[in-house]
Structure formats: C-alpha cells, structure tokens
Design a protein around this nucleic acid. Structure first.
Length: 592
RNA sequence: GCGCCCAUAGCUCAGCUGGAUAGAGCAACGGUUUUCUAAACCGUAGGUCUUAGGUUCGAAUCCUAAUGGGCGUACCA
C-alpha cells in the first residue's frame, strides 16, 4: 500500500520537527488496525517515547496531529496506549478499488529480468505417484506460478529418475512373472502395472531371503545372495553396458510409466518446460570432481576415493567419488547443477525436495560455493515436510501408500455426491457437470495440501474425508460462484463507479483494505516460497466477502451509486479470488 | 553420540520483520432461508501458546537449556 510509505515518510518528518531527532524507516512499525478500534492503519508509537520523552498517549497524539495536518488522506486519528490508529479517507479507498484492484494486471508484477528454474516432481519410474508426490507437485507448480506473478521468467523442470537398481527390480519381476502383460492387455495404467511388478519383486525377494535364512544363512548374507537381487544387479550392469535386450525392455516399461504419469500430471494440472533424465545425467559430475581436485577443494584418499572436508563448516567429511571411480548421488547432482546452469544461465534455481534431504542439499550448495560457482548463491532447497498417515510413514513396498490417482478419483466422486445432494446442477450439461466435479474435488484436495506451511509435516487420515466446508477450497470456490451469479444477474460488464464521494460501510471498507493487501501477499509468498500465505489470504478474503454478502444487499441497494460500487467491489473480489486460487493451481467455477 | 526441523483450543491449522484482551476451520451446542446460491451467516463453549530460565517498555514470536516427536548423520538415491 502506497499510503503506508507516505505515512512512514511523514512520521520521520514529524519526529524530526517535534522532537529534533531522526528515526530510521525500519524502526517504524505499521500494522492493520484491529477490528475493535476505529481506523484502518495503526502506528506503534512505543519506540518514539524514548525520543519524545513523553507518555505514549501524548506522543501518539503529537504524531497523530502532525499526520492529520500533513497527509491528505489521513482524516482522523485516535490513540490507545502506544497505538496510534489512523482513519484514512473514503476517497482513498474508493480510488484504490477503482484504479488499482479493478485493473486487469492487479497483482501481476512487471518482469524483473531474472530467470528462475523450479525443479519439482522428480519421480522414480518404478511405481505410481502417491500423496507425497502430490504435495511435491502442487508445491512446485504453485511456487512457479507465484514467481511468475512476481515478474520472474520461470522454467519448470522435472528431473526423472529413470534408471538404477529399483527400476531393474520392476523390470526383472515383469520379465519373470509378467506373462507379457501390458497396459493394453490388463487395462491397467502403465505406471500402476510397473508398480505392481515392483511389489512382486519385493515379495519374491523376501520369500527367497527367508528360504535362505531357513537354510542356515544370516539375514545379511541372505539379502546379498538371494537370486532375484543378484539378477537385478546383473541387469543393471547390462543396462550400463548398453545391452540391447535390457535397454529395449527398459524403454518399453518406462514408456508405459510415462504414459501413466502423463495422465496423472494432466489431472493434477501440472506441467514442465524441461525434462532431465538421470539416464542422461548419471555420468555427469566427473569433470566437476576433477575441477575440485585441481582447485584443492577436494582431496584424494589412498584408495583413490575423492572427498571434501566440511568440518570447518560444522559438517562432516563427504565422499564425492567412489574408489572405483564411479559416481555417488552427489556426484551426479554436482554435474546436473552445472548442466542446468549451462542450459539456462538462470539467476535462481529452486529444488522442491522433501526435508529428508536437507543435509544433502546443504552439502551440495556448499560444495558448489567452494568451487567458486558464482551462481551457487542462487540455489535454494524448498524443503517440505513428509505426508504422514495416522499409522506413520507411507511405504510403497508395504502397500500403505495413498495412491495419487485413487485419491483424485475419490475426491472427484465425493464432489459429485455432495453437489448432487445439494441439487445445484440443474441446467448443467453432462460435460459441464463432470467438469464442475473435477474443479471442486481437485480444489478441495489442492487447498487441503497447500494451506499448510511447506516445511511442516502434514497428516492425512484416509478414513476422514477431506472437508468441503469451512477452511477449504470449495468454500472459496463457492464464494466466487456466488459473486459471478450476482454479476450475471446485473449484466455486469466492467467498472461502473464514477463517483469518489461515497460513504463506505465498515464491511465495504474492510473488503477494500483486504483487497489492497493482495500484491503484498504475492510478494511475501514469493520471498518465502510459500503458497500457504496465499491460501490463507484468499480464505480470509472469501470469509469477509460472505459476511458482506449476507449483511448488505448488492442488487437491492437503494442508491444507484451504491449498487454500482458494490458490483465493482464484488467483481474485484471475484477477480482476486480467481487470481489467488490460480496461483495455487485451483480453478474457480462460475456456478456451483 | 552429533546435526537439522517441528511443538499454539478435543482435532486440523493461522498468527508478517517482537506490539493491543492469542485467531480461523472442523467437531459440540443454540439461532438465521417470503430477501442477490444455507458448500453460507450469527452466537455459545473451548488456551498456564510443551516446560524452565533469559533479553526488554513489551515475547507464541528472539536467546539458552530441558522434554516430546520427525528426519538425517551410507563408497543408497
């Protein structure tokens, strides 16, 4: 809000003139006035009492007088203890609505010339996506949208883990037990079919282990000697040496998975500009290791393994290359980071990855900094908490995962039931109905996951369905639909208010004050990479509008100017709801 | 052992760089529909902000320690 800057400037002047000393702008605390007091903007005046050598009340009154006399839009003030509550003119708020909030690009910042990559999703191709991936995908997509609204040029990237021992496990199990099943022959989604064989592998593996243990081997020996694991390892070696048959099987099964993921991504509403595949990048990083050795950042042990000593930074010694010269996880991440930078030369790069990898990224970024990569300071790990069930962690191999596709289907089904119960789809075509159910069901799911601060862990109880009432996506969607309905009835087609001399009701003023905060919320959510801030803001806005809607009629307002103004106000609210929800990847319907 | 993260109402969560009597939603109880969509609105009840110290005009917020929970600390990814 620009009025805040004006007030801050004038306070600096006031303190200078009244008390003969200077205050820094960042010492001045401005906040929203609490509901129970008169005014919209509050200045905390405790810090000035030291300069004024007067009571908080007297100091507040001094500054209040000054502001009233010198700032055009400050029309009145009151002082309660160390709080100076300012009343801002009606014209200011009316004007704010008409010239700012209602403009088409409200909340969209000008391009800032910076490029940022957001890497998210990053699935393994041996099993379908589950609820944890859903959180990742929604977060990544939303953060990308938010950065884009803040003026960044955003590149959404997906680093697919398409190779490795876990992939070979699914392949091997399919080869041995699959009877040539395909998605077409079974009707299963490709990623689910492959996941099925990942589970079958694990069952077989466990069976063989217990047989070997029964035959006298220790648990550890059995784990190494079980025939299936040996075969999987052989398969991995063959893959690495480009064995045509293995590669063909690999391409075939990954192809099924990609088709399945494609559907899931589509339903989730996420997309990517750039795909990286680990089968292409897993050998990268060796140059970086060499560079590190040259620069003396890394050192070689007698066995030939390469390390970095981070003990001075409070971390440990970390292996960066095995004794046999092969890569570890961080080797390829070093290489991939370089590759990404070479590809796009971005200013910032966000990795959306769970908090179990906090240490890994701390080390990764630190190494790149020590290597003197100027771009390393732009790297950021957007770390988010795990999604837990009441029973604890989800385990794909133990079948306790909440499957992404199942969950989405269930949400949409529930949306359908709820909507039909309420009898709200009269006059909808079959297609419109299905579209609506999807919008509502996905809205409920997305809002549920995004309203929580990313770094907090998230509890999901499959036995308790996700709500459609209260602090939810559908609540906000409903508010939007109501507004659109009123606007449609009024034949509203754009800004109606001319007059700046309205007397606003408290609720109208509250609404405008709230709407005027939107750009600040967008900026804050970007600097903290937190869609939750937008989610909670939009909820607050919707709640406030519902109150207004309930208490003050729009279409039946006695005065034509008031009616027009309220239509503008409603339209502005709908538009901010639409934009805010859009940044969360949630659509809002016109009717529901 | 060491490191990182979390702890707010019965449950799920807000609480911005320290600022007024700590706020929502759900669940519970009571009320609102001849009036723009009741997926809504209003009210009641519910809290020693895990604990103990400290910093200061002022602490849920910052510092220290303890307790509880999660994660990491692999020549796994």
């Amino acid at each position: 809000m620009d009025i805040e800057n004006k007030i801050v400037q004038n306070i600096i002047e006031a303190v200078q003139k009244l008390y003969g000393t200077a205050v820094e702008a960042d010492k001045i605390v401005i906040q929203e006035t609490r509901k129970e007091f008169e005014g919209q903007i509050t200045v905390v005046t405790f810090p000035f009492t030291r300069l004024s050598k007067k009571t908080p009340e007297q100091t507040g009154a001094d500054i209040g007088e000054y502001l009233k006399a010198n700032v055009e839009d400050v029309t009145d003030f009151n002082v309660i203890k160390g709080f100076l509550n300012l009343t801002i003119s009606e014209q200011y708020w009316t004007n704010c609505l008409i010239s700012n909030v209602l403009s088409a690009d409200y909340g969209q910042f000008k391009p800032n010339g910076e490029k940022v990559m957001v890497e998210y999703s990053s699935p393994n191709t041996n099993k379908p996506l589950h609820l944890g991936h859903v959180r990742n995908n929604l977060l990544g997509y939303s953060v990308a949208q938010i950065l884009s609204a803040n003026g960044y040029d955003v590149i959404k990237a997906n680093l697919v883990n398409d190779r490795g021992i876990h992939i070979c496990k699914s392949m091997l199990a399919w080869q041995q037990f699959g009877n040539n099943e395909t998605p077409a022959s079974t009707g299963l989604k490709g990623d689910h079919l492959v996941g099925k064989y990942y589970v079958i592998f694990d069952k077989e593996y466990k069976k063989q282990i217990s047989e070997l243990v029964a035959g006298g081997q220790t648990e550890d020996e059995a784990k190494k000697n079980a025939p299936v694991i040996k075969q999987a390892q052989e398969m991995l070696l063959k893959w690495e040496s480009d064995d045509p048959a293995v590669k063909e099987l690999w391409s075939k099964m990954n192809g099924w998975v990609y088709e399945g993921f494609g559907e899931t991504y589509k339903k989730l509403g996420v997309d990517f500009k750039k795909y990286y595949y680990e089968s292409d990048t897993y050998l990268l990083g060796k140059d970086t290791i060499e560079e590190g050795l040259q620069k003396g950042v890394f050192f070689k042990k007698e066995d030939g393994s390469v390390w970095i000593d981070l003990t001075e930074d409070g971390l440990d010694q970390k292996l960066v290359l095995r004794a046999d010269g092969t890569s570890v996880y961080i080797t390829q991440d070093l290489g991939t980071a370089q590759l990404k930078y070479d590809d796009f030369k971005m200013d910032k790069s966000i990795y959306v990855v769970g908090n179990e990898q906090d240490y890994h990224f701390k080390v990764l970024f630190l190494i790149l900094e020590k290597l003197g990569k100027t771009w390393a300071k732009g790297l950021f790990h957007l770390s988010y908490g795990m999604v837990d069930l009441p029973s604890g962690k989800m385990k794909s191999r133990e079948g306790t995962v909440v499957d992404a596709d199942d969950l989405m289907d269930e949400m949409i089904r529930t949306a359908k039931e709820r909507t039909e119960e309420l009898g709200k789809v009269e006059g909808f075509t079959e297609e419109e109905k299905n579209k609506l159910y999807e919008i509502i069901g996905m809205g409920a799911l997305k809002f549920f996951l995004l309203k929580v601060e990313p770094k907090k862990r998230l509890l999901f109880d499959p036995n308790e369905s996700i709500d459609f009432q209260g602090h939810t996506g559908p609540f906000i969607q409903y508010t939007h639909a109501r507004i659109r309905s009123v606007l449609a009835k009024a034949g509203y087609s754009g800004k109606l208010t001319e007059s700046y001399s309205l007397v606003l009701t408290p609720l109208e003023k509250d609404l405008i004050v709230n709407l005027s905060k939107y750009p600040d919320v967008i900026a804050a959510s970007a600097s903290e990479y937190s869609p939750a801030q937008i989610a909670n803001y939009v909820f607050e806005l919707a709640k406030l509008f519902n109150k207004f809607y309930h208490e003050e009629s729009i279409l039946k307002a006695e005065d034509a100017d008031v009616r027009n103004f309220r239509l503008d106000l409603a339209s502005a609210t709908a538009s901010v709801i639409n934009k805010g929800m859009g940044l969360l990847g949630i659509s809002v319907p016109d009717r529901m």
